[in-house]
Design a protein around this nucleic acid. Structure first.
Lengths: 233, 233
DNA sequence: TCGTGCCAGATTGTATACAATATGGCGATT
DNA sequence: AATCGCCATATTGTATACAATCTGGCACGA
């Protein structure tokens, strides 16, 4: 029992992650949470000491985030957190609408009974959170529901693509809280979607989800344009 | 006029590319062309001398390609060119169908007269190449047409996403040439799409493009399953 | 006063050296 | 003879050093 090194004594979950992988996760979280503001420059050395890694893994992480579109790299001029451009968000929503429709359709066809039940449970929770006026909880449950629907579609490519688009929308959304009326409408749209799911009506579920996405887009874009240009920097 | 260095005398477009950027382009081309076979390992040092760069930019390039899904990284075990999994290709095609529909719809609404004319011209060219039996030329024109349609949609996010999916499909397609009958059907489907475009019927154009994608998917997947598992390694 | 060219500082891009981990083969033990 | 454990080798992960490029400001001249 003295030279057993293939198994660690359970002190920490084997730390199989590489540094740049972890850096990607942390940076992404920082960007999505708004800790790194859109349009702000990202000095490498500063982030290095902040994350406790060297420049090499950090730069690899920046390349990955650039491929995801969360940062932009300009040769010899450093990286900037991708600014939130209302036109780009509009474009993202356009694609998102198609993805939601596809996800809703496929989820309806491929979801298990357990998954539909889980969806029902989450929807009830959503409703309760709306009644309680808990915006944050509602928001989180809402994301969870949509993620579940996408998962039910059994399509890894759709899942990955959806996640990428959702992250871009999330950034815009955190800057623009929409109003009470839209909130109520949103819940009603969810009701409709759930009704379609309960009837296993794939076509309707898909188109209702698409419509829901379109309505959300309008609200978010209106809020973005309302806030104006100070979001850019 | 002796020390003007801000403007180069037009000898080459200012060479603004970084090494890792170029490496990404070259590696992607090598993967898409099949020069790097699916499933094959990718030793870093070998690629370094092959591309004439150091490990640092090469590794950054590999991270980018991993984010695109063209290679897979396993910690301490190197990178492999993502194997072609028929199930994954099927999933990709499912999303692609939705993207084609969206692209067709938007292109119809937003294309300029000049772009529609250009599309007509390309379609005539496609037809001629079919009559001449020139598969390669047909294939290239086909890709060009679809790219043009996506461009007409005026949606950068759609464009980028479409390109990513198209590249994955391209790899599978190069392994599986479909038969004469499918070729003829494909041309006929293009005829239908063009007819819808000429009438500026967005809904029909979108659904026909989606159907075209679905048919293509069936043919490619059939060919993939026909070839069998030797494609994996 | 304004514009231009140049330079110092800072930051990024790349190369290389070192550390950590996986792989394959060898020998000891049962 | 077969299996298990260990070690040498190769490959990847990370850190650091050096080169190239950009930025901002200043002096010079028109």
């Amino acid at each position: 029992m003295d030279t057993v090194k293939t198994v660690k004594p359970s002190a920490g979950p084997i730390r199989r992650e590489t540094l740049h992988h972890g850096a990607v996760a942390e940076l992404r979280a920082m960007i999505l949470s708004g800790e790194l503001r859109p349009g702000s420059r990202v000095p490498e050395v500063q982030l290095c000491e902040q994350l406790g890694v060297s420049r090499t893994p950090l730069r690899e992480a920046l390349r990955v985030l650039a491929a995801e579109g969360l940062v932009e790299l300009r040769p010899h001029r450093g990286a900037v957190v991708t600014p939130i451009d209302p036109r780009e968000i509009a474009a993202v929503f356009e694609v998102m609408e198609a993805l939601e429709a596809l996800a809703g359709d496929l989820a309806c066809r491929r979801g298990t009974v357990e998954e539909f039940a889980e969806l029902d449970r989450l929807h009830d929770q959503l409703h309760a959170q709306f009644d309680a006026g808990d915006r944050l909880a509602y928001f989180l449950t809402n994301r969870q529901i949509h993620a579940r629907i996408v998962a039910m579609a059994r399509n890894p490519s759709l899942d990955a693509t959806y996640a990428g688009f959702a992250s871009k929308i999330l950034r815009a959304r955190s800057l623009a809280n929409y109003d009470e009326e839209r909130w109520r409408d949103s819940l009603n749209e969810h009701e409709g979607v759930m009704a379609a799911f309960r009837q296993r009506d794939a076509a309707v579920a898909g188109s209702l989800l698409a419509a829901h996405s379109r309505q959300t887009a309008e609200a978010v874009l209106a809020a973005l344009n309302g806030c104006g240009a100070e979001l850019q920097t």
